[in-house]
Write a protein that binds this DNA or RNA. Structure first.
Lengths: 117, 117
DNA sequence: CAAATATATATAACTTTCTTATATATAAAT
DNA sequence: ATTTATATATAAGAAAGTTATATATATTTG
């Protein structure tokens, strides 16, 4: 049972999904893309993003490469070969959870008592 | 912008949805129904449930009535008249967020770079 | 008939996640 | 010259949820 771990931690699988699709991305880019894709609904703050990214790095799921672009240091994050299956697993769990959540707003799905006559 | 409040607080709107549909429910009943509807995916623990319920009561969104059934005290929770629109509002926000989350796993939706040749 | 499981409400300690605030710095636009 | 956009990062605090604990009755199973 997923036991609500995914209710809190939705940002992590979103980040993993975007990294997996794009090969490599830098932090600022991730925040902007999340905002864009969600139509401004989800704001991924830096205070949320970087701890997640750093933790994923420690776990060996993402790796970093530094590049200087326009005189600024830019740090690219990408999924490691080792972390690939783990990332896909977490994304799949996330997708499963979103499907489960959908069930809760089917009209009358959770209805226990029904007027029958 | 919803700014991630809904990513964490998904249990609250789920509870409100079930209460709104069923008129009144007691705590244990809510946990069982959540488990049933989610196919065992979501376990609403008591430690999560009761603080939410008590907070909603303080806010005036739910009210309680006590009943003794089978020699046990049972506490029914229901949406107040005053809390009705607020509850519907929170449920609507929740549904909106689930729709937003769905967007993240459309294939290639978040893809920035595409192989064109 | 004893033990385990299901029913029932609730609190407290703890952990994780996320928000808000802060620090630093360059580039472009107004 | 100031503001806005780009860029990374940490720290303090709040909120949500987990796990453990307490209490108690009813039902089922061995």
């Amino acid at each position: 049972m997923a036991s609500n771990d995914l209710l809190k931690g939705m940002l992590k699988p979103i980040i993993l999904k975007l990294l997996l699709e794009n090969g490599k991305m830098y932090g600022y880019e991730i925040t902007q893309l999340v905002k864009e894709i969600s139509g401004g609904e989800i704001e991924l703050t830096f205070g949320a993003l970087y701890p997640i990214l750093h933790k994923l790095e420690v776990e060996g799921i993402v790796k970093t490469e530094s590049e200087v672009i326009n005189n600024r240091n830019r740090i690219y994050y990408s999924i490691t070969q080792k972390g690939n299956s783990k990332a896909k697993e977490k994304i799949a769990e996330f997708e499963e959870m979103v499907k489960t959540l959908k069930v809760f707003f089917k009209p009358n799905f959770g209805l226990k008592y029904e007027f029958i006559g």
